[in-house]
Computed example of a mutant assay.
Amino acid sequence: MSSQVRGGTRWKRFALVMVPSVVATAAVGVGLAQGALAASFSVSGQSFKVRADKLVGHDFVQYGSVATGMDPEGKNGAHAVAVSGFSDATITNMCQSVVTPNLPFGLGSVTLQLKAGTDPEKPVEATNLYLDVAELDADAYFEHIDIGVAAGDMGKPGIQAGTEKAVNPNGFAQRAKTATLTNVKQTAWATTAGTFKLSNLSLRLHSGVKECY
């Protein structure tokens, strides 16, 4: 791929990343609440990192799936993911970062960093939350957990609407009434929520690589 084409592609990806995610999430949340659209989309060719002090979620489910989209070179890409779903969740001191490398005009790499829920009394709040996870490190505590459940028999919130074709309904899954994760470090390909309330939202661009962890 020539340098001109590569540079143009990166500018397009950079522009898409710059759109504040809270606006997009709010629009999706309205559609989901009204039953107007399924929570299915083509993932970008960039994963992102999330760090949080604490996540407390109810009706936890986890199962294997495939996130499909385009890789950084514009080719079809597919990523095996562990999907974690919650009917509702609160997240304390959340940081999300994504790096766009090798921008033209001498800009080099640029990091978008988003922080929210920094006040323990006002955490991030989400409903119908689904995380397409590639890597996760945390201290975990589960209440009333069932391991080895068939994915199609997990109960609420169940398999994410619109992604059923990517999931084996007889495949391995687990569920719990409550999941508490602390010292969370996560790499993910996508996050979807019916509603996503970001208190004390701060969005900044940083020159170079400045990820959340």
Rank of each mutant, 00 (worst) to 15 (best):
D137H: 07
H58T: 09
V98Y: 05
N170C: 12
S207P: 05
A116P: 00
H144Q: 12
V184S: 01
A173R: 04
K185V: 15
A78W: 02
A33L: 11
G171V: 13
L32S: 10
K185L: 13
G148Q: 06
V124F: 03
K197T: 06
K210E: 04
S109M: 02
G77M: 00
R204C: 08
T182K: 03
D88Y: 03
G171K: 10
A193M: 02
G29M: 04
F60Q: 07
Q4R: 10
V17R: 08
A36L: 08
A151W: 10
F142L: 14
G77I: 00
S207W: 03
P157V: 00
T92Q: 03
P157H: 02
N128E: 08
L201H: 07
G7H: 12
G29R: 02
L55R: 03
D137P: 00
G77D: 03
G152R: 05
A193E: 01
T180D: 07
G155W: 06
T195F: 03
A138M: 02
A138S: 07
L114E: 05
S40L: 06
A39P: 05
L203C: 10
L131E: 04
G64K: 10
L114T: 10
V66Y: 10
A67Q: 14
T92I: 04
K185D: 13
E73G: 15
E164S: 07
K185Q: 13
S202H: 13
T180S: 09
S202C: 11
G45E: 05
S202G: 11
Q160K: 15
Y213F: 09
T192K: 12
E211D: 12
A166W: 13
D88Q: 06
D119N: 09
A150S: 15
S65G: 13
L16S: 14
G45Y: 00
G69T: 04
L136A: 04
E164T: 07
Y141I: 14
E73Y: 13
S40W: 07
G158S: 09
A190T: 11
S109W: 00
H79T: 14
T187E: 06
C212I: 05
G74A: 05
L198R: 06
Q186T: 09
V23Y: 09
P101S: 01
N128P: 04
K177L: 10
V99Q: 08
V149P: 05
L131H: 04
V50H: 00
T178I: 14
F41H: 13
K177N: 13
A27K: 14
R6Y: 09
G64N: 12
L201Y: 07
D146W: 07
W11E: 15
S109A: 09
K197A: 11
G29C: 06
L103Q: 03
P123T: 02
V209F: 01
Q174Y: 10
V167H: 05
A138K: 00
A39M: 07
S47G: 07
Q186P: 05
D146G: 11
E125I: 07
L37T: 10
Q96N: 08
A161D: 15
N102F: 11
V99D: 11
I147L: 12
L198W: 03
